[in-house]
Amino acid sequence: MGIGRKRFTEIVEESYRSIYRLAFSMLGSEQDACDVTQESFERLWRYRSKVDERAAYVWLRRTALNLCVDLLRRRKTEPEPLDPNDEGSSLIEMRPDPLRRCLRKEEMLMLRRALDRLPEKYRAAVILRDVEDLSYKEISQILGRPENTVKSDVLRGRRMLRKILAPYFDV
């Protein structure tokens, strides 16, 4: 029980990318994703004596997801238009986006915005399964829901995403 200083540094090294990715996929904002990632690790550091080392990754992801959900509820804004060309200024140009380097920008942006349109529980399930590539068992631990419910949430989420993206992509 408990996480030492050295082990904590190793956990940061191993998982800060994945936590950031999870937060970014949930929130779609680099700044918010950074804040959520940092806050998640700060909480782990604060409660390091109470968290089991083996459960640290699950604990971190659950904390990050809860923070994302809190943030999304505080925002309460309408989702942005799916097609980046629909709006006057493109977010791609405004944001110093690391995706730019390796991905097709418009496709990524539309995908992200499509994720924004999913209800939170489907979004989290789909991201953990298809982006983070976690098993249903792990996802069920993180979300605190039964495996069968998680499977059903992932399927429903994918179906909704397909429906949203159908007019733009061959999905």
């Binding site: 970014f24 994703a33 940092q38 690391p98 991201i127 298809d130 590539d133």
Partner: peptide
């Protein structure tokens, strides 16, 4: 398509910040 999101990289300095 969703797996493309795996290529997302955090901004430089985030680890240091943490």
């Amino acid at each position: 398509m969703l797996s493309q999101l795996r290529d997302i990289e955090p901004p430089e300095g985030l680890k240091e910040r943490i």
